[in-house]
Simulated assay, not measured.
Amino acid sequence: MIVKKYKNLQLDFDRQIVEQMAKIAIHHYPNEYGGFLLGYYSNDFTRLHIKGFLLVDKYVSSPVAFRRELNIKIHNFEKIFQETGLYYIGEWHSHPNASAWYSLTDLQAMNNIVSCNTVQLHNPVLLILSISSNKLLDFNFFVFDEDRLVVYE
C-alpha cells in the first residue's frame, strides 16, 4: 500500500493497480489512453482509498491528447456503487514519452468535471502515467482543489 498526502487528505492505493493501468496504456502506445478511477473515502473523509478503475471504449486519442466520451452514465456508476461500494473519484490517462505532469487541457477537463451538475464531485483525482513503448516511467496523482491541480506528495 502506497500513501500520499495533500493537506489533511491521505490517498492510498496498491502499486499493482497503477501497474495494471500502465500495461493497458502501453498497449495503446504511442497514443494516450485512460479511464475512470474508483474508490471510497474513510468515514471521516480524511483518507481516500483507490481500489479500481474502468476503461473507456468511446474515445479519440493521439500521442498528445485523449478525449473520452463525455457521457459517463454509460458506465452506470450508481450500479457499481450498489454492487461494490466504490464511487467514481476521478480520471486517469497516459502521457506517452512525456512527463507525468498535467497540461492546461487536463486542468480544464477537471474543472469541467467539477462544474458538471450530474457528477457532484468537488475534488476529483487525476492520475497521469508517463509511459514509454514498453514500461511505466513515472506517475503522479493530483487533486483538484480551489480551481487548480495539486500533486499528492
Rank of each mutant, 00 (worst) to 15 (best):
M21D: 14
E69N: 08
S132Y: 12
H28Y: 10
I80F: 00
E32M: 15
I131E: 12
K5W: 02
K4E: 04
S61Q: 07
S94H: 02
F77W: 08
M21W: 06
Y102T: 01
I74H: 05
E78W: 03
L54E: 06
I17L: 14
E32Y: 07
I89H: 00
Y29N: 08
E91C: 05
L136Y: 12
N140A: 04
Y41K: 10
V18Y: 05
T105H: 06
F53A: 13
S103K: 02
A109C: 06
V114A: 00
E153N: 13
F141Q: 00
E83L: 09
T118P: 01
K79W: 06
I50P: 14
F77H: 13
Q120C: 10
A100H: 02
L70Q: 01
Q20N: 09
F139C: 00
N71R: 10
N111E: 12
K135N: 14
L37V: 13
L54M: 10
Q10G: 03
Q16Y: 09
V143Y: 02
A98R: 13
F45T: 03
N76Y: 09
G52K: 05
S99G: 10
E69F: 09
S61C: 02
S132A: 13
G35N: 15
V119G: 00
C116W: 14
I113P: 06
K7F: 11
R68C: 10
V3E: 04
F139Y: 14
V56F: 11
D138P: 12
V125L: 14
Y40V: 01
S115K: 14
F142W: 07
H49W: 14
R68Y: 11
S130W: 10
N43A: 15
T118V: 07
I89T: 09
S115I: 01
T46R: 13
T105F: 07
E91D: 08
K73E: 11
H27Q: 15
E69G: 06
P124Y: 00
D44K: 05
D14C: 10
L136T: 08
L70V: 03
N97K: 01
S94D: 05
L129R: 10
L127H: 11
N123K: 01
W101I: 04
S99Q: 06
P63M: 11
N71D: 03
L127K: 06
L107V: 09
Y102M: 05
R47N: 11
Y29T: 09
L127P: 06
N31C: 12
S103G: 02
L137D: 04
I72K: 05
Y102A: 11
E83K: 06
A109V: 04
L70K: 04
E91I: 08
S42L: 06
M1S: 15
M1V: 03
H122C: 08
V119Q: 13
T118R: 12
N112Y: 08
H75P: 12
H27F: 09
W101S: 12
Y152M: 15
F144T: 04
R68F: 12
L127R: 10
L86I: 01
Q82H: 02
L121Q: 12
K5E: 07
A25M: 13
A100F: 03
Q82C: 00
S133W: 08
F81I: 00
G34P: 10
Q120D: 11
D106M: 07
H93V: 09
S103M: 08
L104Y: 00
V56K: 10
F36V: 11
K7D: 01
V150W: 02
S132M: 15
I72M: 13
L104P: 06
A25R: 05
G39F: 07
W92C: 02
Y88F: 11
L129H: 03
L127W: 04
K7N: 09
L104T: 08
